[in-house]
Amino acid sequence: MIQITTNNDVMIAVFQQDINFETTRIMEEILRHHTYSNISRLQIDLSAVRFIDSSGVRLFISWLYPLKDRIHIEIIGASAPIKNVLSICQIDQFVDVK
């Protein structure tokens, strides 16, 4: 569902399926069990994600907004429509969407 690896102060989170109201609850649990105090950079890979709904948007906001002031966060591999959704919801204001 989410593959998370940490190398030194960089965490990489690879989402492996769509992020919708069926999957966000389990994803939230997975993300809650990781600590973010020792990292300075978080890279989120959405290459395998075809669809994000409003539950996915809420997941990103609740997960990432509290981290934004001390961690550089970037999203890579997002499709054009997913980038559009992230932009509409202003997530790109505190996350570097590449």
Partner: peptide, 19 residues
């Protein structure tokens, strides 16, 4: 309004539809 960054549990489905 876009979803609140400070109240992430509020729904934003209708906002997305409207957009």
């Amino acid at each position: 309004a876009p979803p609140s960054l400070l109240a992430p549990h509020e729904g934003c489905g209708l906002f997305l539809i409207q957009q």
